[in-house]
Design a protein around this nucleic acid. Structure first.
Lengths: 209, 209
DNA sequence: CGACCGGTTGACTGACCAGTCAATCTGTCG
DNA sequence: CGACAGATTGACTGGTCAGTCAACCGGTCG
């Protein structure tokens, strides 16, 4: 068996296995032994690399959320309309789901939407995303792209809420999945939040797919 | 001690105690003995009235969700614009929170947002709400009040997502609470989802409080 | 009074599982 | 080689609770 000097990264294998197990069974019905088995590793090794079962989930969440926050920051740094910024953020999150649905499922279901369990610990981190989105809205209002009257905090909540709700719909098979659906969702999220549902004379309807 | 023939309703006392305990500690860190103690009742009596700890939560959820579904149905039966229907639904949910924050916290945090635990069992029931909201949107589109192009399912998701996200904000103190805030939230949810964030010439900004 | 019964009690049990730890393995370096 | 260090193993322990159950209580009825 070809293996490099430091051997295969067992820590990484445990994290990857944990994603699969947590996605399949849910965090709190997963036993540490399930994760060890899935990783093909002895029970005790999990505790060589992690202090606790919780810490595994913390690690998964923080790794990914940092990437998200950084992506939002980069989007915001570009000189493009706010609507396009929101589209880029929705895209990033949707594509994250497309690329690794199990990981996103775990993060959303077990952390983000579980605010009284793990979310509690990471509330600050989660809120960072809202704050960044609110800043985008606030600037767009100041510059006249978005109308005033809707508080930026609120708009951020609604935007993030829509994104999370759509992912949740995919996760629990309430919505069809697929490349077409992913692209359509990005467009519809932005179109709903920015354009609204109201019919406004002279404003064209959204183009189909 | 004055007590009527059938004695005080111990079953109800257990349910009410459960709401307080689950809201305070979260469902899965609450012990059945915590609920019994809070209700001032012996441990075993809980199992006289309920088959399991889970069934207590199921009961709380179903009781309340039925009321919500019925309220949505009644709203939809009225001959008023869709925008007002959505406002009435948002009002109902927000007022439910105002009236009994602990109960709504438990329902949202432990059931609605916990789709892989309890939500799984009640997915159908939860989805009923989406379906009813989508029907409102669909009709409004057919009648020209809402523009076409945004699928009703999607609009329902975004609307419900915004409401749930706001409640979550209150529950975890990310948003200020209070009568003013509740009224403002109702208006802003509807204004965001129906009116959108975009500035549209000739459309007035939202009035303040 | 005495039998009966639903409501009520709380000690107890059985299962489960996170986390520990002593032993073993593997590789490296002098 | 031999000794040391870090990686790896998995049996075991301690604590936690959900759910059970045998006993008890207080009212009702014949």
């Amino acid at each position: 068996m070809a293996r490099s000097q430091p051997a295969v990264d067992k820590r990484r294998m445990i994290l990857d296995a944990a994603v699969r197990v947590f996605a399949r069974q849910g965090f709190h019905t997963s036993r540490v032994s399930d994760v060890a088995d899935e990783a093909g590793v002895a029970y005790g090794l999990v505790y060589h690399y992690f202090d606790s079962k919780d810490q595994i989930l913390d690690t998964l969440f923080l790794e990914r959320w940092d990437i998200l926050l950084q992506a939002i920051g980069e989007v915001d740094a570009q000189a493009i309309p706010a609507r396009e910024k929101l589209y880029a953020i929705a895209s990033f999150i949707v594509d994250s789901y497309r690329h690794d649905p199990d990981l996103m499922k775990v993060i959303i279901v077990e952390v983000t939407r579980a605010a009284n369990t793990f979310g509690r610990t990471h509330l600050q981190q989660i809120q960072n995303a809202y704050v960044q989105i609110a800043a985008i809205v606030e600037r767009a209002q100041r510059e006249g792209e978005f109308r005033a009257g809707i508080t930026p905090d609120f708009a951020a909540l609604a935007f993030y809420g829509a994104v999370e709700q759509v992912l949740t719909g995919w996760i629990f098979s309430l919505l069809p999945t697929g490349d077409r659906e992913y692209e359509q969702a990005k467009a519809l999220i932005v179109e709903t939040i920015c354009g609204g549902l109201d019919r406004v004379d002279g404003r064209p309807a959204v183009a189909g797919s």
